[in-house]
Design a protein around this nucleic acid. Structure first.
Ligand SMILES: [Mn+2]
Ligand SMILES: [Mn+2]
Ligand SMILES: [Mn+2]
Ligand SMILES: [Mn+2]
Lengths: 222, 222
DNA sequence: AAATACTTTTAGGCTTGTCTAAAAATAAGA
DNA sequence: TCTTATTTTTAGACAAGCCTAAAAGTATTT
């Protein structure tokens, strides 16, 4: 089995990401959106990847990964997230700077390298954005997390992840000093637009928009 | 200035390597040999790189890097060697396993990444094979090193580098426990074929062929 | 159901990077 | 110097990946 090109790997990851979130076939347009390319290019590539047995593809009804494609994609996600941990924990990048670099590092081909990196980082289970890192067998550690807006008034929780990883969003969180591990308690909800007033780390009150809160994952605490 | 493809970068490095060693224009064949490709492909690429102002190229008389090409190549060498240090020092790879991986890592584009890696590794001046690592400005640390066979009988020295980095050679050195930093003293030279008998770390006598000794760089000591 | 909007595919073209085979240039040997 | 060997370039082809424009298919409105 000869290895994939970077382009092929990126397509696999895109199909994986769409299937993971919506649990449905990845549409041509959705893939094009993620990879910043055209629908025409995507059609082209889907045909080729289907030919290689990495995904199922029927014209006009999108693509889903095969077993083999899914394994490869999972391994890419593993590599991507491990590199992100390395960049933040070891090289002290901030969490909004690492995605682009990991996007390149994930394509370096060496299983030994990833094994050793994993060991060096002490087998982390989550990346800097709170996303789970699959182990070498492809198993994800699942976590009982919910979107922040699902909490009732008075409930306490710990922020464990972000739904979106855009630079703008992450920088905003830095600014309001809201990082992973932060303790929050919902103080008040403005029903008009979903704005939330929350207590942060038992020492500060902040107000965040619905747009922000729905992109935060938390784990309830007592 | 838009960035180079991996192929282009590899060609620049090849031209650099040839020019560095022999201090002459890189021939089409020599480049093809290093990059494991055909002379035809090399001719093609040299034309394109010359068009981009990265090297001087005249038909039938090889290529030499321009100032700009030289800067880019030096930076690639820096990246390659820093990654090799990372792989050996941080991830504990052995020195014969790192070249291939660094060959890929060197193409990751992020100046910030290399800066931080350099800092994390404490700005090493030499890579695991004893080759100098240029600093961010492109300056190499030069060292007064000579090939082992140039020592006179009785002279003492420290092994500081290898000329060749083939897996076979490095594994052989591991086997005879000859690593960088080893102290050697020349005991005897067999003029017939240049075989050397040397004392290793003041506690062992070993015999090495001329082929081996000419690939070892040493620094004389008193 | 027909019209309109949107999505997806096809057709055709371009660049990059490779190859083999043949031609041309240079170097080496007689 | 002339001939032969070697090196290098050119010619022509191909796969991967991308693009734009046009055609075809699907979904949504009216
Ligand atoms: Mn990528
Ligand atoms: Mn991430
Ligand atoms: Mn390389
Ligand atoms: Mn090296």
């Amino acid at each position: 089995m000869e290895s994939l090109t970077q382009a092929e790997e990126n397509y696999l990851k895109a199909v994986f990401k769409i299937g993971e979130k919506d649990n449905k076939a990845a549409s041509t347009n959705a893939i094009a959106g993620i990879l910043n390319t055209t629908a025409a290019s995507v059609s082209d590539m889907l045909k080729r990847l289907a030919g290689k047995g990495l995904l199922h593809y029927e014209k006009h009804r999108g693509a889903t990964l095969t077993e083999k494609g899914s394994e490869l994609a999972t391994n890419l996600v593993r590599k991507h997230r491990l590199w992100e941990v390395f960049l933040v924990k070891t090289l002290h990048f901030s969490w909004d700077e690492v995605h682009e670099i990991a996007e390149q590092l994930e394509h370096v081909q060496s299983d030994e390298l990833i094994d050793r990196l994993d060991f060096f980082l002490e087998k982390p289970q989550f990346d800097p954005h709170g996303d789970p890192i699959p182990d070498a067998q492809g198993n994800f550690t699942m976590r009982r997390q919910v979107p922040l807006p699902s909490l009732a008034i008075g409930e306490r929780a710990v922020v464990v992840g972000v739904q979106e990883s855009s630079v703008a969003f992450l920088k905003y969180l830095d600014k309001i000093k809201l990082e992973l591990g932060a303790r929050v308690q919902v103080l008040e909800r403005f029903e008009y637009d979903g704005t939330l007033k929350i207590e942060l780390n038992s020492n500060e009150e902040i107000t965040i928009s619905h747009k922000v809160s729905e992109n935060l994952f938390v784990q309830k605490t007592k």
